[in-house]
Design a protein around this nucleic acid. Structure first.
Lengths: 418, 418
DNA sequence: GCCAAATAATTCAACCACTGAACAAATAGC
DNA sequence: GCTATTTGTTCAGTGGTTGAATTATTTGGC
């Protein structure tokens, strides 16, 4: 009688449900089930799970197969008596997503197919700070062209691209600020428009999304582990510190897409001045520069992407300054994370980017601060674990965001004219 | 060509769309449109906005009118030539929500109809700290019974109830901890089960939801201003400090419903010890107790609910200690809010509860810290404004959460057997 | 005062996609 | 080889939307 449940998000009555929407919605439902299933399901399995009849599922699957979104796995999984089922899998010769990344000392491109498999991956190391944005994007376009050729050779069609950038991006793809690259107000889509198109346009799928790398890394982590938590904080420790917030299986971007600036959460209100204008920001205690300085390392002759590995080596060898530096960084990180957990009630924190390698030394102080400062820590333990993808999370997440979009709404792909 | 847009939440393929779902979904769509319209729309208006045909809208509206969810406003709005439209309004004689609140020094009950109008409101002042949870809930049940009679006298049917509690509530309605009430592990639904039922059961609508007051207050604020922001932080300053986070028009509750514990965000990592076990929590700098002490007021002979008014009076009269106390509280609040805004990229902060009255003195220091510490403050101003509902936000929000649920999913009400 | 234009709401045959049951296909076990 | 069992397809039936035609009710011009 006194059944209780939380105040849930209202079932969004976004748009009206027209006649044809029925099929459109069920295409997404069936495709989503096939994508989420641990092993290739039969039509009958899908029908049982969704509540649709087998007749309907068959009809929907026919459409999906005709549109190269779903294939049948020939060696059907055997169960027992009865006619053997034909397993349904996401097509490996249909649409794919192009992931791109520009970072301080490398460019990267990768291709991910519908099933989430990485089918192509290139990283080109280069210090991009002295390079103009236009030149950097020109080099990126070359990588993209190579990726596209490789994808087509494998029977894939690039349906969209996402570019990870270490900075703040607005809704139009303008990079407002990427401090570590030295970029300010760089109109990425415009600068790329002179180059050959990256992808084949598909209705409903934006050809290029420019997004903060920490956000895309969080998405990558989300999709890397289908059985993982659906709500978590992903903290990327690079030169700066960014965070991606995943809530209920979706990236939370904030009002303007600028969420996750955890690096500027105050951890010592009147502490060290920060280039953001504030004082005592987390970045000044747990950012790469601060940790290297505390460990007594000279960052000028240490490539940014090897700093974490170097620190991990030293810490493994019981180097006292490195250990102390990581303990201090972990404590600062823990103070910020405690605030986040108090605010958002998350139960999982993923340490990504450079932090992934350093998890053994960062986790204890982070957990100590969390258990001390989080009101609900007694009832609900917080898990702190390293990223599964590490530094590749952003590119892979970028490519994955494209295919996820197609899985969530396959109608555009199915209706494409090409 | 290079159209850009953010990585959006995937269209949730929650459940399969069966044949009948079509009508169910459209009932919600049409009802939602009628609810959201600034003035009573005609059937034709709804058809134009939703994209459904007028024939369909008429059929759907017939169902809604038959189910007492929608009525026709007799004095139809005149437009020009043509047959006059009949305005559609949410019914004032259909379902309503019962809002309840238990706080430190009062009990409250209110009834809100589908349109969001408050049709009944009672507050009973009493210090509930010395009262046992069972007795407190017994008194609350009396208030509820009175509210129910009044609602029925007005032709309303109570379809569900929500109870606001100043504490942490789990999914089963168990109040794990309500420090200022002195409650710990109070099974509210069980204690209320001996009393006459609060509401008439409706399928799909939980008869009683127990929820944190700050969360419900944020919902109240959301519905109080239909043209207001859909994402904001609502900070309730009472004895403790709680926050409700509204994202895209929905309350964000966290993994276990324990989000919003902004009072325990560290603002001085090694500062004043807090009863939560941590140090330097916001509550120790901007909570009622801290502010009163800083202002030189004795909180023991000052009822909790008049403390804010007293402070506002003193501050208005240029009382130096009160001014200084509020400046210090505002600064601490600003540090915490800056962290939240950096993390979530919100552009609106609503000061509620006791803070509403104190906004003139809290806003400047809060804004100062925000503009100093938020990375994106230069491009995106943050608005800090007082709550529109003030201390009534939680009860009204509680009752409103019930009717919102019905509007979002009217099928349960329409299919009820009663 | 009457008629045309305009807008609102309803009616109705057509159609689309799902439903449910029957049926064909394919295998395991006896 | 026969039965039980499960998968997948076929097909008439049905619910709900569609679009056009029709009715209803007002304004405005002559």
């Amino acid at each position: 009688m006194w059944q209780c449940q939380g105040v849930t998000r209202p079932a969004a009555p976004a748009g009206a449900v027209r006649q044809g929407s029925l099929r459109e919605l069920n295409l997404a439902v069936v495709l989503g089930r096939i994508a989420a299933a641990p092993r290739p399901p039969s039509r009958a399995d899908v029908a049982a799970v969704t509540g649709l009849t087998r007749a309907t599922v068959s009809a929907v699957v026919d459409d999906l197969v005709a549109g190269r979104l779903v294939g049948e796995s020939e060696p059907a999984p055997r169960t027992g008596a009865g006619r053997p089922a034909r397993g349904l899998v996401l097509a490996g010769n249909g649409p794919a997503g192009l992931g791109l990344e520009i970072n301080v000392d490398y460019l990267a491109a990768c291709v991910v197919d519908l099933a989430g498999e990485v089918r192509h991956h290139t990283v080109r190391r280069a210090d991009l700070r002295p390079v103009s944005p236009a030149d950097a994007l020109a080099r990126l376009a070359e990588l993209a062209a190579v990726a596209r050729v490789d994808a087509e050779r494998q029977g894939l069609t690039l349906a969209g691209a996402a570019l990870a950038v270490p900075g703040l991006v607005d809704a139009a793809g303008l990079v407002r600020l990427a401090p570590n690259l030295g970029w300010r107000d760089v109109p990425v889509p415009e600068l790329l428009s002179g180059h050959p198109p990256l992808v084949d346009p598909v209705p409903g799928i934006p050809p290029l999304v420019v997004e903060n790398e920490a956000n895309l890394a969080a998405l990558g982590e989300l999709h890397a582990d289908p059985d993982g938590p659906v709500s978590f904080l992903h903290v990327s420790g690079e030169v700066g510190i960014g965070a991606g917030i995943v809530l209920d299986g979706a990236l939370f971007r904030g009002v303007r897409g600028w969420s996750g600036e955890i690096g500027h959460i105050p951890v010592q209100p009147e502490g060290r001045p920060c280039r953001c204008g504030g004082r005592g920001c987390l970045e000044r205690y747990a950012g790469q520069e601060a940790v290297l300085a505390a460990a007594g390392l000279d960052r000028t002759n240490l490539p940014a992407d090897t700093a974490a590995a170097r620190l991990a080596d030293l810490a493994s060898a019981d180097h006292p300054a490195a250990r102390a530096a990581l303990a201090e960084a972990g404590q600062a990180l823990g103070i910020a994370v405690a605030g986040v957990v108090n605010l958002l009630d998350l139960d999982t924190v993923v340490l990504g980017g450079g932090y992934a390698l350093l998890t053994p030394w960062l986790r204890p102080p982070v957990l100590a601060e969390v258990s001390r400062r989080v009101l609900t820590a007694g009832w609900s333990p917080v898990t702190v674990r390293p990223s599964a993808l590490g530094p590749e999370a952003a590119v892979v997440g970028a490519a994955g965001s494209v295919v996820r979009r197609i899985v969530a709404d396959p109608v555009g792909w199915l209706n494409r004219t090409g």
